[in-house]
Design a protein around this nucleic acid. Structure first.
Lengths: 116, 116
DNA sequence: TACATAGTTGAACAACTGTTCATTTGTGTT
DNA sequence: AACACAAATGAACAGTTGTTCAACTATGTA
């Protein structure tokens, strides 16, 4: 039996037992929360929002968000690792673009939630 | 003129100027990122997932997630403040239920994203 | 080749976050 | 009233996160 960390007994064992088998497996759980962690930063939301409209290079994104290139680059890396954006080098510049069609619809759903 | 924090000039001013007026206003921006921050924790995802299936009291949620009542209660408070769940006292127990119909569809969209 | 520019990187720092622990509040029971 | 139990709370702690700063790489140009 696995070690027990809860400091009490179930009050409605039937409900607990009904819900338990439908809980997400560990891997899915962490992929979900990691995804939302990435979305949970105002700088990264701005970057995604901007890239929804047009692909842009790091310097232009820095001007648009009024931040240093370094700060923007760090956050773009987080988005790139999460596979939400992709980058392409064109001469001296690196252009970033959205790499996931779910981002837009999730942002829209979140806006619906907020607008109530 | 507002103070400039970016450490460079725009490379494609036309693109920056086209995108700029469509950027989200500060209030919306923070509401969006705050919402995703709340979703960006594996404990809170588990709580929402469980409550999607059935309303439950704190003790049962603690047993289900194998955590202390205190830890669960702290996270339920975060969800309550974010208006994602509501609570109702029934005798000695406090039952929590989902209080937002967008959560389910956002979780589903996020699952689609992960499943690729 | 030498130089300026675009972007990346890693260390450092302060700010924030989640769990634990001890305590408190409130309800039902004896 | 005294007690047991469910839940909430606040302080404390370790772990994480975002920005800054300085250094570095890579590309285009004089």
């Amino acid at each position: 039996m696995e070690d027990k960390r809860s400091d009490c007994e179930a009050i409605n064992i039937d409900i607990v037992n009904k819900v338990k088998p439908n809980m997400p497996e560990m891997r899915v759980l962490y992929e979900l929360s990691d995804f939302f962690k990435v979305m949970g930063d105002s700088t990264r939301i701005q970057l995604l929002w901007a890239l929804e409209e047009s692909e842009m290079c790091v310097g232009d994104l820095a001007v648009l968000l009024n931040m240093t290139k370094s700060a923007v680059s760090h956050q773009l890396k987080v988005l790139r690792v999460a596979k939400l954006v992709r980058s392409e080098k064109k001469g001296k510049n690196v252009y970033y673009a959205l790499d996931d069609h779910h981002v837009k619809s999730i942002l829209e759903k979140a806006l619906e939630h907020i607008g109530e």
